[in-house]
Design a protein around this nucleic acid. Structure first.
Length: 444
RNA sequence: GGAGAGAUGGCCGAGUAGGUCGAAGGCGCUCGCCUGCUAAGCGAGUAUACUGGGAAACCGGUAUCGAGGGUUCGAAUCCCUCUCUCUCCGCCA
């Protein structure tokens, strides 16, 4: 196995069709620098775009110099080719030798400037949508709606780790023995429950919500990770393989969105809706001591993910639908939840707008995130070069990409265990799930 | 892992003794004509990105024949490296 460490960096830019993708539209940026800066500021982190203008001007300057020399060379070269007697051209050849040297120098400078520009733009987050509430942190998120009533328990509801261990369906100690902290072994009906939920969700989304099922690779290359925005900024959160420059996916969003990287889609094919089950691998760096018990925060967990490619005009309608599709899972399972609209300070790097679905966990007496549904607008599409032609004749435009968990499976197990626990320590199986559990009505 | 073949436009497919090739031809597609309807037929058009000019329509420049580099006044065509695909052998779920 050969490891081309030296190629790792430049490989980001190795795209066949779209060369040097710019995250935020360079021309748009050029003309709206201040406005963009102001809007990015609402995310909380100070983004300084002042370096951009200089680099951008330098780039165009070099480009023009280089291109006019190339035009000259092309002209002279053509003249030479027309000559019958090539020996007449010695003078021109010598002159063009000189020109070619100059071009080489200019192109090298250009390459450097473009790389700088690129590296900078890759670290600039998406511009929040105007409808995203402005706020600093989680505390400023807005509850959009609540569904279901948290149940009344005649006993003190237990957290899922106690329920799972007592029923012998979750084994945290052996998970840690096999691998380490934040890994869990599911046993018997626990494993069955996880699998039932996966199938239930996939069936719901494919059969009733018209998503196309995909089963992608669970590890991807650097281009894919850059396309959706995990790289270059968040490499520390990813598991990287030794020997090959591949990463374990932190979410199916990465392989599924990248399916159409560097493609021009037909406008009539939009919206495209995919659903995929995959395991997800996350280092959870920086979350030491947080959610150390139970299934909430694992290095490996299962998720059913919804992904859409849409036209810019319809992306927010599609986001509503996607969110509704994810909510439907909890409604069918009859588990209370609420929908939260994230504020500018809390949305992810690539997102323009995000709704979280938070499920009610009686064992912990709180709502916990179980799904995150986002519209990335054209941010990922730009990075990944995903475009569409509105009409046969029309120029390609960037699509909007969206995705959302539909749902995080491990956390759904948590929700089922805690919401369906009985006084005697057993857990009822939600009715919608029974066909997927071989008719089993109760665990324990 | 060993041996060989290949990578050209939406698709198929020419082009490799370097020159006017962004690239023949066909299919598809778009517009127009024709036609009682359909089919066939005729004509025109049909890549992308960056960049200069323009309010715009549009006009000009540069680049792109898997990717990167080299030789040359000039490369789809020659040389080197890499990636991917296919065939055969080995190995393997």
């Amino acid at each position: 196995m050969t490891n081309e460490k030296s190629n790792v960096k430049e490989s980001i830019f190795r795209e066949s069709k779209v060369k040097a993708p710019l995250m935020l539209d360079a021309r748009y940026l050029r003309e709206n620098l201040e406005a963009v800066e102001a809007r990015l500021k609402s995310r909380g982190e100070g983004v300084d775009l002042s370096g951009f203008r200089q680099l951008d001007e330098r780039r165009r300057e070099l480009l023009q110099q280089s291109e006019s020399l190339k035009a000259l060379r092309n002209k002279v070269t053509e003249e030479i080719s027309r000559l019958k007697d090539k020996s007449q051209a010695e003078g021109q050849k010598a002159q063009m030798r000189e020109v070619s040297q100059q071009i080489k120098g200019l192109d090298e400078s250009l390459r450097q400037v473009e790389e700088e520009l690129q590296n900078f733009l890759l670290t600039v987050p998406n511009i929040p949508n105007p409808t995203t509430p402005v706020g600093r942190s989680e505390a400023d998120n807005v509850v959009a709606r609540t569904w279901g009533e948290p149940g009344n328990y005649s006993f003190a509801p237990k957290p899922h780790w106690e329920i799972g261990e007592e029923l012998g369906i979750l084994d945290f100690e052996r998970g840690a023995k096999l691998t380490g902290a934040r890994f869990t072994l599911y046993k018997g009906q626990g494993a069955r429950l996880e699998r039932a939920l996966i199938n239930f969700m996939l069936d719901l989304h494919t059969q009733e919500h018209n998503y196309i099922e995909m089963l992608p690779p669970f590890m991807v290359n650097r281009e894919s990770m850059t396309g959706t925005g995990q790289l270059p900024k968040f490499e520390d959160d990813l598991f990287h393989l030794e020997g090959v420059d591949y990463f374990l996916i932190p979410t199916a969003e990465v392989p599924i969105t990248n399916i159409h990287r560097s493609e021009i889609l037909k406008g009539s094919d939009l919206p495209i809706s995919y659903v995929a089950y995959t395991p997800c691998f996350r280092k959870e760096a920086g979350s030491y001591g947080k959610d150390t018990r139970g299934l909430i925060r694992q290095h490996q967990f299962n998720k059913v993910e919804l992904v859409k490619f849409t036209s810019p005009e319809t992306s927010y309608q599609e986001l509503e639908k996607l969110l509704g599709n994810a909510e439907e899972v909890l409604r069918r399972l009859n588990i209370p939840y609420r929908v939260v609209e994230l504020c500018t300070g809390d949305i992810g790097f690539s997102s323009a707008k995000t709704f979280d679905i938070e499920v009610w966990l009686p064992g912990q007496n709180c709502y916990r995130e179980i799904s995150s549904c986002s519209n990335f607008e054209d941010f990922q599409a730009r990075r990944a070069g995903i475009r569409f032609r509105p009409d046969e004749k029309a120029k390609p435009e960037y699509v909007h990409t969206l995705n959302g968990s539909g749902l995080a499976v491990g956390r759904t197990v948590v929700a089922v265990l805690e919401n369906y626990q009985q006084a005697d320590g057993t857990v009822l199986v939600p009715e919608a799930l029974r066909p997927y559990m071989g008719g089993v009505e109760k665990i324990g």
